[in-house]
């Protein structure tokens, strides 16, 4: 669900980097984000089609050559704004967010943005949520406390991942930009 929701924004992010063909977009997406589940061509083109319909991208002139699609897509002002907003907004601190988080970090790195700032923002959001849960845990009944604990442990795992990623940002950036 989350993954599906982020495909259009991921593609927008890839286009923010540079105007690309659908084929290139699919290849980059598969390399960094799909992790063994390649994005079907159909989904790539339907998503691009929807983005073009909403005015977030525009398709360029078809270039001569083989194959059905030699169109180059370019991001529009609307698209760039939407992408920017999405990138800076911390993901809701819920237990199963790695993929979105991860996607954002990689895209930020690809675009040369401050991924660390992004991660710190995310961190702050996480901690705020953890504080809420801690407060709940201190004041609420035992059942609530146990549930809060569950959430706290998961959020802590996310935070550890965030910390680890921050520590490895340099290496990751080198890999993404290569």
């Amino acid at each position: 669900m989350v993954l599906l929701m982020s495909v259009p924004l991921t593609l927008l992010g890839l286009l923010e980097r540079e105007p690309s063909h659908g084929y290139d977009l699919k290849r980059d997406y598969d390399t960094f984000f799909s992790r063994g589940k390649p994005l079907p061509y159909g989904q790539v083109y339907s998503t691009l089609g929807r983005l073009a319909r909403d005015g977030k991208i525009v398709a360029g002139e078809a270039e001569p050559g083989d194959g059905p699609d030699r169109k180059r897509y370019v991001i529009t002002e609307t698209g760039a704004t939407e992408f920017e907003t999405w990138l800076q907004e911390p993901v809701a601190p819920e237990p199963t967010l790695q993929s979105v988080l991860f996607t954002k970090v990689v895209l930020a790195l690809m675009l040369g943005r401050d991924a660390e700032l992004y991660l710190d923002t995310q961190r702050a959001a996480h901690l705020r949520r953890m504080r809420e849960l801690t407060e709940l845990r201190r004041s609420g009944p035992l059942v609530d406390a146990l549930l809060a604990d569950h959430g706290l442990f998961h959020l802590e795992a996310d935070l550890r991942w965030i910390d680890l990623t921050v520590a490895r940002l340099d290496v990751l950036a080198a890999e993404v930009r290569s």
Binding site: R123, L127, L133, T134, L152
Partner: peptide
């Protein structure tokens, strides 16, 4: 993090530099 969650606010020190972030502010 779970210990830090008892705090009102946190500062992060990385490579000898500290930064404070208020989750609200961003």
């Amino acid at each position: 993090a779970r210990v830090a969650a008892y705090a009102d606010r946190e500062a992060i020190v990385r490579d000898g530099r500290a930064r404070t972030l208020r989750a609200e502010s961003v």
